[in-house]
């Protein structure tokens, strides 16, 4: 099922002043596949996906879309090229209703000239139908997004990206703030998006979430790639060890063992 990569980065680097947030990282994602990016807090995961999403421009390295090197001018261009991102911290506008959020930035319009207006009825109807099609059951599309649970919010954001014809879906820690059951719900939507043929980049610091859905695993530590593995090449335990930097975890294990 693995084809030519939709999106790839080669040896990208990003600095913030004197902080080298990312150095020499390469990865790719193909249609109908899930690439997981794992790493502890501060490993550079969000920085990497902000490069993929066009928010940051890499200071070095290549960005390839369908094999062609590109330079994105910003998130709008990334969106127009079919790369949709659901951010960890800035997914939606809490005070706005579900349907207003669903169409934010890509509102359907009707009418001409000065009478061009937001087709509110169509937006309400479509949002409800699309959410239902993804198996997301929102009680009332008029309710403010702030009143949804974390899992529901992520699910709405995923459904939105799928609806707007994303080819690549980037998710920044969609499950990290969620309970076990809610995380399961979001993982199911990730699998559903993948089955619809999207390439998914799934960022997490939880190997238990990554391992069941991932086709490829990139492990980051302190801004650098520790390794990249295909499904079957690596176990969940190995991922855990890699993420923490093996030696550190061994040391921790010994330290905790003494206290018993």
């Amino acid at each position: 099922m693995s084809g030519a990569p939709l999106l790839a980065v080669r040896q990208v680097e990003k600095r913030f002043g004197s902080v080298l947030a990312l150095r020499g990282v390469s990865t790719s994602v193909a249609a109908g596949e899930v690439t997981c990016v794992l790493g502890d807090n501060g490993a550079g995961k969000s920085t990497l996906i902000k490069i993929l999403a066009g928010v940051h421009r890499p200071d070095a390295g290549e960005y390839l879309l369908d094999g062609e090197p590109v330079r994105l001018s910003g998130p709008r261009e990334a969106l127009d090229r079919g790369i949709a991102t659901v951010y960890q911290d800035l997914a939606m506008i809490p005070l706005m209703s579900v349907w207003r959020n669903f169409f934010l930035g890509s509102e359907p319009v009707r009418g001409r000239g000065p009478f061009r207006r937001f087709d509110v009825a169509a937006a309400r109807r479509t949002a409800r139908a699309e959410l239902a099609a993804m198996g997301i059951d929102i009680r009332d599309p008029d309710q403010p997004v702030g009143t949804l649970s974390g899992g529901e919010r992520q699910s709405v954001a995923i459904a939105r990206a799928v609806y707007f014809g994303a080819r690549v879906l980037i998710l920044d820690e969609p499950t990290s703030a969620l309970g076990v059951k809610q995380a399961g719900v979001v993982l199911r939507y990730i699998a559903r998006a993948r089955d619809r043929g999207l390439g998914v980049v799934f960022i997490t610091h939880n190997p238990h979430h990554a391992h069941p859905v991932g086709d490829r695993f990139l492990v980051l530590n302190r801004g650098a790639a520790v390794g990249e593995y295909a499904k079957g090449e690596v176990t969940r335990e190995e991922l855990t060890t890699l993420m923490a930097g093996g030696a550190e975890l061994d040391a921790l294990a010994r330290e905790l063992a003494r206290g018993e």
């Binding site: 999403a53 928010v55 998130p75 969106l79 991102t85 951010y87 800035l90 997914a91 939606m92 506008i93 809490p94 005070l95 706005m96 207003r100 169409f103 934010l104 930035g105 890509s106 509102e107 937001f118």
Partner: peptide, 16 residues
């Protein structure tokens, strides 16, 4: 819609 969005969460609005 954009006015509500930039006031509600400017970064999120920009991102979409």
């Amino acid at each position: 819609n954009w006015i509500f969005a930039v006031g509600g969460n400017e970064q999120a609005a920009r991102a979409v």
